[in-house]
Design a binder for these strands. Structure first.
Length: 287
DNA sequence: AAGACCTGCAACCGCGGCTTA
DNA sequence: CTAAGCCGCGGTTGCAGGTCT
């Protein structure tokens, strides 16, 4: 089946976006919402391809995009997720609120790929996992705060990093409801979930396995490693048990591939939960 | 000082999956 | 059921800015 081009390229602007184009696009989307990318350029009065508009919005103009240096914890999470998911950038980005797939992809290609490669060499040369972790922890200690650069409409094309340092403010607590497997519905605030699991976990399931609540207290600071401080590759040991009910983390993907991956991720979370006595295998077996 | 080379990242391109008629 | 349209993803490219020689 042949595909028509997404837009006729004649007369369209290409390359870097100008500040005025950015303004037109964000004003239009703020007014009409996202979507209908194909019609958007004509309706908004932009001489751009719909795809280009979508990319510009999602990767640059969207208000909640976090730009700038990627923290140690984020980096660690990217490495672990990449180990699990491969180049599934959108899925990885889904676990890093405020980060775009393009940013993560670029960061991986320019920085982490080399870093991971070097670390693998170190492992071969008898660097223990603990040594690597200590080294990484020390790097994180030295990292006081990291840059935050908020998306600004007036900025155009090239990133201008703020010299300020970023501080991720975790919520005091975070409630993650595991949805009823028989009645799937999105859970909230799922996207942030991996970020805020650290110090203490209290469990209330009201003797009802299908309405299980997990109250996560983050204590003094946010850490990804609380949840992901384990090797994904080593943790697929839940007796082949599969997670029912689908998208436990982000709830954002609807494709089969995404569902598969999410299922795998969900299983990771359940593995983690299964190691917590208050939850244990008894509850899991009821799923 | 200037040219060559390197790096990071925004943007483009093509493909595949999903939806709709 | 099929074809066409749309959207989103991942790979790749091109360019600006930085560093090296």
């Amino acid at each position: 089946m042949g595909r028509s081009p997404c837009c006729t390229k004649i007369g369209l602007n290409r390359g870097s976006w100008t500040a005025s184009e950015d303004k037109i696009l964000s004003d239009y989307i703020k007014l009409h919402g996202e979507g209908k990318w194909r019609q958007l350029p004509a309706k908004a009065g932009l001489k751009r391809c719909g795809k280009s508009c979508r990319l510009r919005w999602l990767n640059y103009l969207k208000p909640d995009i976090k730009r700038g240096n990627i923290s140690c914890d984020e980096e660690d999470l990217i490495i672990r997720l990449h180990k699990l998911l491969g180049n599934r950038w959108s899925l990885i980005a889904g676990r890093l609120p405020g980060r775009t797939d393009n940013e993560i992809k670029n960061y991986w290609n320019t920085t982490l790929a080399k870093k991971v490669h070097n670390e693998q060499i170190n492992v071969v040369s008898n660097h223990s996992r603990e040594q690597l972790k200590k080294r990484k922890d020390k790097e994180c200690e030295n990292e006081t705060e990291t840059d935050v650069v908020t998306t600004k409409v007036e900025r155009c094309s090239r990133t201008q990093l703020s010299p300020r340092r970023q501080h991720i403010q975790p919520p005091k607590s975070n409630v993650v409801e595991i949805k009823d497997p028989a009645n799937p519905k999105p859970i909230e605030p799922a996207a942030e979930f991996p970020f805020y699991l650290q110090d203490s976990i209290t469990v209330t399931n009201n003797n009802n396995p299908s309405s299980f609540n997990l109250d996560v207290n983050t204590g003094g600071g946010a850490s990804l490693s609380g949840l992901f401080n384990m090797d994904f590759a080593d943790s697929f040991n839940l007796n082949g048990q599969m997670v029912k009910g689908g998208d436990m983390l982000s709830g954002s993907s609807t494709t089969t591939a995404a569902a598969d991956t999410t299922q795998a991720l969900s299983k990771e979370i359940l593995d983690y939960f299964s190691s917590i006595p208050e939850i244990g295998g008894e509850w899991l077996s009821t799923l």
